[in-house]
């Protein structure tokens, strides 16, 4: 459910594509079979919008036929006051122990290309 056709998810797909293109070229790859992404639950990426942008964005590119694996990483935060670590779904959730909002996000903001599986091509 994408609310708008203009969305940052398309920029993100383009960023992934650019990284994949460079890495594939460096590896002398002829094609990309698989791409593994880390996308944290707190990374402001709407997965429906991302899927939509992905399908549009990879058409006619090296990633068009690639299998996409997404590791959704759950949000974790540490309370700056009482130092306990807990899982969060929204960045403004208070510490469940003391109720304070001084929290440090330790996991869940990831947005990165983790790895590629490529087929080596001829050096040409």
């Amino acid at each position: 459910m994408h609310k708008s056709k203009t969305m940052h998810e398309l920029s993100i797909v383009m960023g992934i594509l650019e990284i994949a293109r460079k890495e594939a070229a460096m590896a002398g790859a002829a094609s990309i079979d698989e791409i593994e992404l880390d996308i944290g639950a707190l990374s402001t990426v709407d997965m429906d919008a991302f899927d939509f942008a992905w399908n549009q964005g990879v058409k006619g590119t090296l990633l068009a036929g690639a299998q996409r694996k997404v590791n959704r990483i759950e949000g974790r935060a540490r309370c700056m006051d009482c130092n306990i670590e807990f899982s969060i779904r929204e960045i403004f959730e208070p510490c469940p122990a003391c109720g304070e909002h001084f929290i440090d996000i330790v996991k869940g903001k990831e947005l990165r290309v983790k790895s590629l599986v490529v087929e080596e091509g001829l050096a040409h």
Binding site: E18, A29, S31, R112, S115, V118, G121
Partner: peptide, 15 residues
């Protein structure tokens, strides 16, 4: 074509 795993570990917003 032999298959290779390329470890990328790059932030998408890196650029």
């Amino acid at each position: 074509h032999p298959k290779t795993i390329v470890q990328v570990e790059q932030d998408v917003l890196h650029q």
